[in-house]
Design a protein around this nucleic acid. Structure first.
Lengths: 125, 125
DNA sequence: TTGATATTTCTATAAGTATAAAACTATGAA
DNA sequence: TTCATAGTTTTATACTTATAGAAATATCAA
């Protein structure tokens, strides 16, 4: 994930109404819910809601699809995962002992990215 | 973690320079580094840097301590962990199958909070 | 003391973001 | 068609945040 996309995603989430929308969608699961239902839960006027949904969509955090008259919004779990991974990437400089220390106690994703194991190839003789 | 604190933390991270500072500190580990070294790496004038360090500190994401003439900044791993947990909390409504689905593929912390197992107590006869 | 270094606070300007009323668009039902 | 519903776009105003120069503060060394 590019740093600029991460800033955009964090900016989209750094607002009360939008954080509420995103969490609601994360909790509703991959099928999502219609815009109207979101507005009902959060008690926002529709233009305000639409503005915030657009911000989240533009940041890649949610997706929308039309289903007859309804527009169904759902969380983009892939983006969410990448965002979390970015923040903890290469935590403690890859020093696993520091990661595990009382002061840090880093999350699972914190460990340095595994270098893919190179497939052993037979040497041509 | 309170929602308002989460919004504050996300807002603090949603800025290019601050995201850079935070990631640098996360990678440096619990011991931290002095302000000057941060400014050097990010190439920002000191008032700008100080402003951003304050924002991060105010949001609870970093801490500072004086060590002679230097001010040492370090990441607050606890806040970071709570922030990540908040975003994925009660993911997919606790439906583990949905969490594990191709579309969601939620992170480890996504599973609903474990209800602490009650210790079996001997009945007084 | 005085001076040098490390960093912060104050300040003004510039730039970006949120809100909701009004007007618009898309879909389906009568 | 015409109407109702679900939602979006446009617009203006109000508010919040970023930047960096200048001045201030804290610590140490001579």
């Amino acid at each position: 994930m590019k740093k600029s996309s991460v800033v955009a995603a964090l900016g989209a989430l750094a607002q009360d109404t939008r954080l509420g929308i995103f969490r609601l969608l994360v909790q509703k699961g991959p099928d999502g819910i219609p815009a109207g239902e979101i507005g009902e839960k959060l008690g926002q006027p529709s233009p305000t809601l639409s503005f915030h949904l657009n911000q989240l969509r533009f940041a890649g955090l949610i997706s929308s699809r039309r289903q007859s008259r309804l527009i169904i919004y759902s969380a983009n779990y892939k983006t969410m995962n990448e965002l979390l991974a970015f923040l903890t990437e290469n935590c403690c400089g890859g020093n696993l002992a520091a990661c595990a220390s009382e002061t840090a106690a880093c999350p699972p994703g914190c460990a340095p990215k595994e270098v893919p194991i190179q497939k052993r190839t037979r040497r041509v003789s």
